[in-house]
Design a protein around this nucleic acid. Structure first.
Length: 130
DNA sequence: ATGGTGACTCGCG
DNA sequence: GCGCGAGCCACCA
């Protein structure tokens, strides 16, 4: 594809970078915003991939991956307790209440999301490429 | 091309 | 509220 055409993963990263500190979204909501209502798993996979180096420069350091939880408002990292704890710590550090079971009150912290116009703009040219 | 792999979701019991 | 099964998707070997 053309150099300027973002892959699905890139789109995920760009949208996630729009989530303000103190707020959270879900894998499914991100997927829906990108026009793939059933691609929640792919979104999770995209964030998981942040720990590996990629040619676009997106890393766990420049993408606020911790602000994405599952639709139930719970931290969804399964097989890596260390990462799960880190996510909880990072969220608490920015003012999000996370109980001992890794639950977050979505009614309080859910990110409304982007409007179509904004989304379109973000995906076209992010003024802050990594 | 094909099948395996998840940081997912939703619907049922 | 919890566990299961089934559906869905982008990536990678």
């Amino acid at each position: 594809m053309e150099p300027g055409t973002p892959s699905f993963y890139e789109k995920v990263y760009k949208v996630v970078r729009c989530i303000p500190p103190g707020q959270v979204s879900s894998y499914g909501r991100i997927a829906t915003m990108l026009g793939h209502p059933n691609a929640a798993r792919a979104v999770g996979y995209a964030l998981s991939a942040l720990r590996h180096p990629n040619q676009d420069g997106y890393t766990s350091a420049n993408v606020p991956w911790q602000r994405v939880v599952n639709s139930q408002g719970r931290i969804s990292i399964r097989h890596r307790e260390q990462a799960a704890n880190k996510q909880a710590d990072l969220l608490r550090a920015e003012g999000v209440t996370v109980d001992e079971n890794g639950r977050i009150d979505l009614a309080t912290h859910l990110w409304p999301g982007l409007h179509l116009i904004e989304l379109d703009d973000i995906l076209r040219n992010d003024p802050q490429e990594p």
